[in-house]
Computed example of a mutant assay.
Amino acid sequence: MDRVDQPAPEHQRPEGVDDATVAAVGKLSEALETVERARGHLYEFHQLIGSSDAKLSEAVSALRDCDQDELADTIERELVGRNVIHGRWTFQIVEDFDDGYWSCVREHERRARDQLLKGRRHVFEAEMKERERSVRDDGSPLPGHEATPD
C-alpha cells in the first residue's frame, strides 16, 4: 500500500537520477560531515590551548607569590604566549583551515549536489528514512515515524 505521507520535496530524488548517483553524493556529504566534526575538534583545540595559556599565566603569578621569581620569569618568557606551531597561534591555524581545506570541501560537496541532485541535500538519508519508517496497513505512519514534522 502507498504511504499516506511523503518526504518533503527538497529531500526527494530528482527525476532521472539513479541509485549510484544518490549513493555517490551521499558519500561526498558524509565526507563533509566528517570534516565538520574535525573542524569542531580544531575549535576545541583552539579553546583548550587558550585556556591552558591563561592557566600558565596564573601559575607564573603563583610561583612569584611563593618567591620563585627566576622559575616564573623563565616560564613566562619561554612558554606563556608561545606559538603552538612555528609562527602560529591556534587562531591562525583555525583561519587557515577554514579558508583552505574546509571551504574547498564544502564547495565541492555543494557543486556535486547542485549538478547531480538539483541542490537537494540528504537525499540518500531521506530515502533510508523512507525505507525504515513503520506504517500501518492503511499506509499512515506509526507515531514517531512521520515523514516530516508537519
Rank of each mutant, 00 (worst) to 15 (best):
M1P: 04
D2F: 04
D2W: 06
D2S: 03
V4Y: 12
D5W: 02
D5L: 03
Q6N: 10
Q6P: 01
Q6L: 13
P7G: 00
A8L: 12
A8V: 03
P9I: 02
P14T: 06
E15F: 12
E15S: 11
E15I: 07
G16W: 00
D18W: 03
D19A: 12
A20W: 05
T21W: 03
A23L: 05
A24Q: 10
G26T: 02
K27R: 08
S29L: 09
S29I: 01
E30R: 08
A31M: 14
T34E: 09
A38P: 00
A38R: 04
H41P: 09
Y43K: 12
F45A: 14
F45T: 12
H46F: 07
H46Y: 03
H46C: 10
L48S: 07
L48G: 04
I49T: 13
I49W: 10
S51L: 06
S51Q: 09
D53C: 00
A54W: 10
L56Y: 13
S57G: 14
E58R: 08
A62L: 10
R64A: 00
R64G: 03
D65M: 01
D65F: 06
C66I: 12
Q68I: 01
Q68Y: 07
D69L: 10
E70H: 14
E70D: 15
A72V: 09
D73W: 01
D73L: 04
D73T: 07
T74F: 04
I75K: 01
E76C: 08
E76W: 04
E78Q: 10
L79E: 00
L79A: 02
G81D: 02
R82E: 02
V84A: 00
I85D: 02
H86I: 13
T90A: 11
F91M: 02
Q92R: 02
I93N: 05
V94M: 07
V94T: 15
E95G: 09
E95N: 14
D96C: 14
F97K: 04
D99V: 14
G100P: 05
Y101C: 06
Y101K: 02
C104D: 15
C104T: 14
V105Q: 09
E107Y: 15
H108R: 15
H108I: 14
R113W: 08
D114G: 05
L116G: 04
L116T: 05
L116S: 05
K118L: 11
R120W: 12
H122W: 05
V123E: 09
E125Q: 14
M128G: 07
R131T: 00
R133K: 12
R133H: 13
R133W: 05
S134Q: 12
S134I: 07
S134N: 07
S134G: 09
S134C: 06
V135S: 13
R136Y: 14
D137K: 11
D137E: 14
D138L: 05
D138M: 04
G139D: 01
S140Y: 11
S140R: 11
P143I: 15
G144I: 13
H145R: 05
A147W: 02
A147M: 09
T148G: 04
P149D: 11
P149W: 07
P149L: 04
D150K: 13
